[in-house]
Design a protein around this nucleic acid. Structure first.
Length: 644
RNA sequence: GCUACUGUGGCUCAAUGGUAGAGCAGAUCAUUCGUAAUGAUCAGGUUGUCAGUUCGAUUCUGACCAGUAGCUCCA
């Protein structure tokens, strides 16, 4: 007999060798029905797993993240089974569970069309109805190779597992068998509600030089109502999409004639960008940054010296013949320009750190498929700064840069949405990264220590570093769940030397400084995109291009409205009057749809009493106030952020 | 760049192998109105662009341009 510790610490005895499935059965029919997998001593396992020793066992259902993953993983096998039935020539690659469902990659001659996807989905539903039991077995590498001899991608995977010395595990359901580590559900029939969401191309092993496979995405739930709920949620999220909302609200537009990735900001969008820029430039000045203003283009020589020409030429817009000596390029970054300013004078160790910042418009020739709303564009403006410091000042300066980012996040209201990623080089990628193992190891270790000292939670990501050094990226997800870098702080051990930057140290020796590349609010366009999504277009009062709209009820209150407008404007509040000859309900509706924070309704009553009727975003009618009282309240609310 | 999908007036969408219709927005007129849409009239389109098939294309085919999601990339 073995002792099994169940949920809530209850210990039960079972004969050794009993499976988790059999134990689950004893715990009730409901749980057995809902069970997806189990956790044995903290490890997610199949319910088929026999228990041989005393252990802790908890049953995982769809309610738990790890249970969900098992559920979706089985769904991906159902997808593969359906594809194999309909397209026997399809070769199987991999099919994992992801954050919101699953996918499976197939190698097929003809990528699936939307119509094919419908057929595949129907076949999946048929398989679910058949409810085949899912079974597990293992084979030796030789037997496994024989079994999968027609599946080239599986053979590749088998070779890898075999190299680790493991037996190879398989899962079967009905007429389908797949190489798989598991775990899986007991029966395919549990996947009651499923939907294939899209079909895209994806490269084998995420490498563009490999063959492109056909990836089918889907999601699934134990109940139809859950699927419905999920699909509704996705639809709701799309309503916050900055690319839709930003256009609707008139923040920006794009034009085929102007070109891809080149948004045009109208008065409202431009106003918000201006507010953000003033805020950032003032805040950075307070923190010891000095403003620079450098050219938008330079001769190729500059980029050759910095190394960008070798590492980044394809991403630059060139002006003139690439091979000619006088070819120019629009700048894709500001580093070498600010470094040139640094180099225009001798520097003493007494001057360091020097902190340069610039509201810097950059140009990057992103490939056509990369562009997305305001998040990936070809011309954008970065709050770009470079801190030139002595090596012993690195930790302090890095910490200061993190501090600034934290403060900015807090003010614009994104603190809760942003997470930290420590981006390291991929040591095997000699082409992308500067080839200096010692410097990399050294810098990464130093930076890791600084991060630990600061005490922020971070994840590490291989192969995400800049070519010249590791980065701390402040990441955020858009409404579609896709992650992007919002702010970044980078330690550079390479460019200062390459650009011949020096300082004279206390001992009279010329030394090479370290450089911290950093952005405090990132790229304005991208940050605006995230703000629009975060607030669903209803930006905080201090950021609103129009803070108050005065709505006269009829022409008779127009003059009164004009007087109010002057008082508001004089007080520094961004306001306007809707003088159109429309009904008050109509004007309110429009202002409401534009998500304005405040409306002032003025008619005969207000004129007589010398008051204004206030409507606040989200609250509706909040009653009457005197104009002075309203103005001071609004100013107070704006100043809460304490930035102007 | 690759894969799938999409492109009809400023916006949202309808229709069709025989050159298109609605709502909103716009203009004009009337209405001077009390907390989310006043009414009428008018105007607005070479159906993304260019080829091809056809007696005839907005509809079918191809290329290109642009958009959406994903992949690769993102200094």
């Amino acid at each position: 007999m073995i002792k099994v510790t169940l949920k809530d610490g209850i210990v039960k005895e079972f004969p050794a060798g009993i499976t988790a499935e059999e134990i689950t059965k004893t715990l009730g029919a409901e749980l057995y029905k809902a069970a997806c997998a189990c956790e044995i001593n903290g490890r997610v396992c199949d319910l088929r797993t026999p228990l041989t020793d005393d252990c802790a066992l908890s049953i995982l259902t769809f309610e738990q993240e790890s249970g969900k993953k098992v559920f979706w993983h089985t769904a991906s096998h159902i997808l593969a089974q359906a594809v194999k039935r309909l397209y026997p020539a399809a070769k199987l690659a991999i099919g994992p569970a992801i954050d919101n469902g699953f996918y499976y990659d197939f190698d097929v001659e003809q990528p699936f069309s939307a119509e094919d996807i419908g057929k595949i989905e129907n076949e999946m539903k048929r398989i679910v109805k058949e409810n085949p039991p899912v079974t597990r077995f293992t084979l030796s590498p030789e037997e496994a190779r024989e079994k999968m001899k027609d599946e080239p991608y599986k053979l590749e995977l088998i070779d890898e597992h075999a190299a680790d010395g493991d037996d190879i595990s398989f899962y079967s359901q009905g007429d389908f068998t797949d190489l798989c580590a598991g775990p899986h559900l007991l029966f395919a029939g549990a996947v009651k509600a499923l939907k294939l969401t899209q079909c895209t191309g994806a490269y084998w092993r995420a490498d563009a030089s490999n063959r492109q496979l056909c990836r089918v995405y889907g999601t699934a739930f134990p109940k139809a109502a859950q699927l419905e709920e999920y699909l509704t949620k996705v639809e709701e999220a799309k309503k916050r999409d900055h690319n839709i909302i930003g256009r609707q609200l008139g923040y920006f537009t794009t034009s085929e004639t102007v070109g891809q990735g080149l948004p045009l900001f109208g008065p409202k969008g431009a106003k918000v960008l201006q507010i953000l820029q003033r805020f950032i430039e003032d805040e950075e000045e307070k923190r010891g940054y000095q403003l620079t203003k450098t050219p938008y283009m330079a001769k190729s020589d500059l980029y050759k010296q910095s190394g960008h020409w070798a590492h980044y030429k394809d991403g630059m817009f060139l002006l003139g013949d690439e091979d000619s000596d006088d070819v120019m390029a629009l700048r894709p970054m500001t580093c070498p320009f600010q470094f040139t300013i640094y180099n225009s004078a001798m520097h003493s160790y007494r001057e360091l750190p020097i902190r340069y910042n610039e509201t810097s418009t950059l140009f990057r020739n992103e490939s056509s498929g990369e562009m997305h709303g305001l998040i990936r564009i070809r011309q954008f403006t970065l709050s770009e700064g470079h801190i030139i410091a002595m090596p012993e000042q690195l930790a302090q300066e890095f910490t200061g840069a993190v501090d600034l980012c934290k403060y900015i996040m807090d003010v614009i209201g994104l603190s809760e949405d942003i997470y930290y990623r420590f981006s390291l080089r991929d040591p095997d990628d000699k082409e992308k990264y500067v080839d200096d193992d010692d410097a990399w190891d050294n810098t990464e270790a130093k930076m890791r220590q600084i991060l630990l000292d600061i005490g922020i939670p971070f994840t590490e990501a291989l192969g995400e570093a800049a070519f010249y050094g590791p980065k701390l990226d402040l990441q955020m997800r858009n409404v579609h769940g896709k992650e992007d870098t919002l702010f970044t702080i980078q330690v550079d051990f390479c460019l200062a030397g390459r650009m011949g930057m020096t300082y004279i140290d206390a001992d009279g020796e010329k030394k090479t400084p370290v450089v911290v590349h950093r952005s405090s609010i990132g790229c304005y366009e991208r940050t605006l995109a995230m703000l629009l999504e975060k607030y669903a277009g209803a930006l905080p009062l201090w950021l609103c291009p129009e803070q108050v709209r005065i709505l006269p009820i009829s022409e008779r209150s127009r003059e009164f409205a004009a007087g109010l407008l002057k008082s508001l404007t004089d007080a520094g509040i961004r306001a306007s009057v809707d003088t159109r000859n429309e009904k008050i309900g109509y004007k309110i509706r429009e202002a409401q749809l534009e998500k304005l924070p405040y409306m002032l309704i003025v008619g005969e009553k207000e004129m007589e009493a010398g008051l204004v009727s206030v409507r606040r975003r989200g609250d509706g009618d909040v009653g009457q106030q005197s104009p002075d009282e309203f103005i001071s309240k609004v100013l107070g609310e704006i100043k809460e952020k304490n930035i102007f």
